[in-house]
Nucleic acid binder design. Structure first.
Lengths: 149, 149
DNA sequence: GTGATTGCAAACCTTTTGCACGCCA
DNA sequence: TGGCGTGCAAAAGGTTTGCAATCAC
């Protein structure tokens, strides 16, 4: 049920870099390895703090830039705030969200079939549930038009 | 399907404030009204930019502080980054997330029943779908222990 | 060799904090 | 009147950018 972090695969990493036209540097290798090792969706700073233990002269900017580069190449995903700002939602009744991956727009929707999804037993046993909802990543009509899709 | 923003209800707002021991000020009223009006999960800055048109001497800090106060009282929810930092996820295979609402930890899990939830027709017609996943908000065992739950 | 990448410094943007004044209850 | 809430100023926290030196290819 709960995922184990996949081991770091240097060959797969190298291939991904090559496929995306990215140079393979010791820094990038260390950054990606640490991201895999952490297995906890770290922030750029968390990755940086770990790496500098073995790589004391690495710069934070390198870590941050590399992570963004990986994201742009589809080698990882950004979760929790693509833009880095908090957003506020006054709707307290049960609903779900669409996120436009281009412009960041967040659109509410209701759908009863999503409201009471059965939560896996293994999770119920181990965690205290607060609530649950569905996120659908989309490209909204405005963005689709703008990019001539 | 898609939700219309509920109209601003001054009485309901006043009640909520009183129930939470919050004073009702013109600023707070304007902030909450704008949040409802926007209907698009604005950031603190977006709310501020709108309000200052009619309320030119309001301070950004007031807007931000009020929104956080409302959130603490359960009058609204924070979405997209509770902490304001980006997090990176190297797992590209289908999975879902648990978010601990106390410490911000994000835990992966897989659950086939969640992988291909049927997306509502109305959404399929109107939006280009990128992908979709389930978020379960939890209190993790560490936090539950720490608060003597 | 050449252009991408790094590290430094500084800028930038958003959010938070300290404090005195003012206003709501 | 008492104390919460506001606005100002400044700090803090996180991210981004410009540039020269360096390194991967």
């Amino acid at each position: 049920m709960q995922k184990e972090a996949a081991p770091f695969d240097i060959d797969a990493f190298s291939d991904q870099c090559r496929n995306n036209g990215l140079r393979i540097t010791p820094q990038r290798t260390a950054i990606y390895r640490e991201l895999i090792r952490a297995g906890s969706h770290p922030s750029a700073d968390m990755v940086y703090q770990q790496i500098r233990r073995q790589f004391p002269h690495i710069a934070f900017e390198t870590v941050n830039r590399s992570l963004l580069t990986f994201a742009r190449s589809g080698m990882l995903r950004i979760i929790e705030s693509r833009s880095g700002v908090r957003r506020f939602d006054p709707v307290l009744t049960k609903h779900h969200h669409m996120h436009c991956v281009q412009c960041g727009r967040i659109i509410d929707f209701t759908h009863e079939a999503y409201d009471d999804l059965k939560i896996p037993e293994a999770i119920l046993k181990k965690y205290e549930i607060v609530d649950q909802h569905v996120i659908i990543n989309i490209i909204c009509p405005v963005c689709r038009t703008n990019q001539g899709g």
